[in-house]
Design a protein around this nucleic acid. Structure first.
Lengths: 141, 141
DNA sequence: AGCAAATATTTCGCAAGCAAACAATTTGAA
DNA sequence: TTCAAATTGTTTGCTTGCGAAATATTTGCT
């Protein structure tokens, strides 16, 4: 077993993603939708470019995800007066519900994977991951 | 900024992946290939199902990745006498070279994202990620 | 031996991911 | 004011990703 950062981050993300999607099977959410719902739950009314940056996906990818979310009635895209270039994305009633379910599911999954790790250690883990996140974004490659 | 595990693991994996692929632009490696090269570097001659498990991707996904890697002469698929069902995958000369380059690139990227984190803290981070990995695999959902 | 179950890979269809090219709109500088 | 540059989003084409079903082979049970 290779205990390097690159391997652990890859494999943990893959496993966690599968764990969450598995819990959300009963909903009709496709793999790309939970993270967008979670982002909008905290930043309702964002422009697409900000959602894409927040979720670290390409704007071109987001186009398709939002299209399907709009068809399913989870979000609405509106333009503001004075800016017809940007489109602002809002959760619908149904989107808010699904977003709350997603958030609850994330929490549940996080509890399940924390056994053997105490509160202090978990905070340390999040601090270190946050430091790495800042290192990668501040230098901006 | 949301400092939850699910967000940090998602975003760090995405950013790290992009950082590595960016460094490997001069090679002609597609996004799925580095992890397979890295796995084979440590486990040359594996069966496809083991590569898939090691990289946490679906066997069906691996089929396409290996097809393109074989076309480019990075790997060879052979069958062993007495088992025509499994196919065993070996790095070619060129595959070994590219694998070493990938490994060096991972190391380089890992150093770049570690600023402000000392040796002891990094070990703690890897230990915690490894613990979470074990929690997710031992319970096997 | 014979045949059902298990194993390993591939194929198919769709969603997600990116780069590059494009379209529409806004900004800003001459 | 006018037009070039920047901004925002979409389209296209390809790779990656998964699940389900198909195919081929091996194992195991009787």
């Amino acid at each position: 077993m290779d205990k390097s950062f690159h391997y652990l981050i890859m494999i943990n993300q893959a496993l966690f993603q599968k764990k969450v999607l598995n819990k959300l099977l009963k909903t009709e959410l496709t793999p790309g939708q939970p993270k967008v719902l979670d982002y909008l739950r905290l930043h309702d009314g964002s422009m697409q470019k900000d959602i894409a940056r927040g979720c670290q996906i390409d704007p071109a990818t987001l186009t398709g995800i939002l299209e399907r979310m709009e068809e399913k009635g989870l979000v609405e895209r509106r333009t503001k007066a004075g800016n017809r270039r940007s489109s602002y994305v809002y959760l619908t009633e149904s989107g808010i519900e699904q977003g709350e379910l997603v958030a609850k599911t994330f929490l549940e999954a996080e509890e399940e994977i924390s056994s053997g790790i105490d509160q202090k250690e978990m905070e340390k883990l999040l601090d270190l991951l946050y430091q790495i996140y800042r290192n990668m974004t501040e230098l901006e490659d």
